[in-house]
Design a binder for these strands. Structure first.
Length: 109
DNA sequence: ACCATGACGTTGA
DNA sequence: ATCAACGCCATGG
């Protein structure tokens, strides 16, 4: 697995990830969309996989559209819980309540 | 250069 | 909820 895909892309993604406030979670698609890569959702996940290699980012606040944490990363759950993010009995985040507005006012509830 | 496969996904039926 | 199809990027033969 290569450590670097696109320094520019990584910068955009990590830049958005930093925007994610604590106690909230964002989806790969949402991030991909904010950077202008709506279809690159999967690519975002791949970058986050090595995100720690580029620097310290709250990549733990990123989950899939289902709110499910990343596989091979059991700590992510503990990290989110520590921020106040609640999990469902399915082990998924209630993105319906904790999904980041993505910078838009949106209606959180 | 070409084809086939994989990755922390997303959407539609 | 479940199954199938799509999408971009990178890798290997």
């Amino acid at each position: 697995m290569e450590r670097i895909l696109n320094e520019h892309l990584i910068y955009e993604i990590l830049s958005v990830v930093e925007e994610i406030p604590a106690g909230r979670v964002a989806t790969y698609g949402q991030i991909a969309r904010l950077i202008g890569r709506e279809k690159n959702a999967r690519l975002v996940g791949r970058v986050l996989s090595d995100a720690s290699y580029y620097g310290d980012y709250p990549c733990h606040r990123v989950v899939n559209h289902a709110g499910r944490p990343a596989p091979g990363w059991p700590e992510q759950r503990a990290l989110l819980e520590g921020e106040g993010v609640g999990f469902r009995s399915d082990g998924c985040v209630d993105i319906k309540r904790f999904r980041w507005d993505g910078g838009a006012p949106g209606e959180t509830g």
